[in-house]
Amino acid sequence: MNTSETNFTDMPNCSNKGFPPQVNPSAPMPNITHCDTQAVGNEKTDGDAQTTGKPEATEQQPLLQLKQVSIFYDNNAAVRKTSFPIPKHKITAIIGPSGCGKSTLLRAINRMNDFIPNVRLTGKILYNNQDLYSKNVDPVAVRRRIGMVFQKPNPFPKSIYKNIAWGPGINGYQGSMPELVEQSLKQAALWNEVKNRLHDSALSLSGGQQQRLCIARTLAMQPDILLMDEPCSALDPISTAHIEDLLFKLKSNYTIVIVTHSMQQAARISDYTAFMETGHLIEYGDTDQVFTLPKQKRTEEYVTGRFG
């Protein structure tokens, strides 16, 4: 049943209600069910080893699959019956006019919508064949594996170092924290700018630096998926270029889903593009195809700038 390298089955020490035990001794896996964070954190290294061991398994099926996903605020559907795959180690862009449900859909992937009262989701979001909305999935463990960068940079009002070290700390990271901080900042192309003032307040950084710090903070958790909700909309063109370069580099190690307002940005950086309008998925495909040979008339009108 579980062919991929990750699953969310119950830990042996957790209650196992209505879910068949799937623990495969040859494939220890990260875990997203109701277990303590420590246990989840410890599983991580095993999962990584598994990833490098069986790369061909990931080619066959996408890391994440949206299946008939509808999301309702009270009884208003914000997203309607949307299905598309999110392949591993690629950048998938979700574009569409304001209010089309793209941010709502993105937030559903790491269950951030749980915090909004009266939000309901139907359909399935399959992450390595496990439904993220199944009853025994722990949303805290989901968010620990599926990181998110928000529209406005939101560093904690603490030092640069603490901004990065806090997440791994609470999730039981046992390696060397200074090394992890350095490595994360280097990955986010921020290290050279802040290495001499790691203990200054994160709020003393510029907007673009703050956003890269937020990316570094998310990378420090070594997530499987990086969700980005219009990460450049509050930034100037130079900072935007920095972050786009960064995403390009991160692609080899991370699966990235980016919601963007800017069609140029989607065309520049993404491998696949999903175009949404009023909650419906209008078109999904290779970015080149969506932008040069769109199958739907609405997509063509949008990408050529006739509306939106």
């Binding site: 964070t37 805290v140 620990r144 904690f156 806090w166 958790m221």
Partner: peptide, 18 residues
């Protein structure tokens, strides 16, 4: 306390109490 601060923490896999 801005919602964005809480969201940042939640997105890192923090519980409500943390």
């Amino acid at each position: 306390v801005p919602l964005s601060t809480r969201q940042a923490a939640f997105a890192l896999g923090a519980t409500r109490w943390q």
